[in-house]
Amino acid sequence: MKHLNNMKTCLSTILMFLSLLVNAQVKPITPGQPAPEFNLKNVDNKMVSFNDYPTAKGFIIVFTCNTCPYAQGYEQRIIKLNEKFQPLGYPVIAINPNDPKLSPGDSFEKMQERAKSKKYPFPYLFDQGQTATDLYGATKTPHIFLAQRTGKGITIEYTGGIDSDPEGTDLQKTNYLEEAVGALLSGKKPASTVTKAIGCTVRRGR
């Protein structure tokens, strides 16, 4: 009898777990949490991790890809962000979160082509198995995670969008990310730590 009960408990746990899997919706990690470590292959075939930047004050981690029109619309702005903030200690690290089986245009070879033709001044990393994507809870491209390095480690300080103007036509736009980096550089916390912006859903293999 006890054995049967155990089995029942076990079965219902499995069922619960399965239903969780079915309903699982990815949630981005929130500001205040440690930035998950990664060690991923760059388009130049070298591995890249936070440790490769011993003097960086933090990182602008951008989940982006080749194929999403929204990500393409932000591509030049991401290059400009790196130009502006790498010298100040906040380099851009771009990660492609898509499974190339579901999105062939986001294969490692296609990433190499795009990085070369658009002259990416920052690493563009391939997330084999989508582990970093899952650790960060990246849901879309582009999806920004701004991290700051302190004595206690590397902490997420801001997540969300780049600015309030995806179409690139609004002169009154708010530069969420620039404002957040600016705040960190002047020893403050960002005024907004989470923003929302439209993007292409991450193509997750199952």
Partner: peptide
């Protein structure tokens, strides 16, 4: 609606903005 920061949250606060 123009302001994504506003309308995404109003539609659902758990929506990060990914489509569909």
């Amino acid at each position: 609606e123009k302001n994504q920061q506003e309308y995404i949250d109003k539609i659902d606060k758990n929506w990060s903005g990914a489509l569909p």
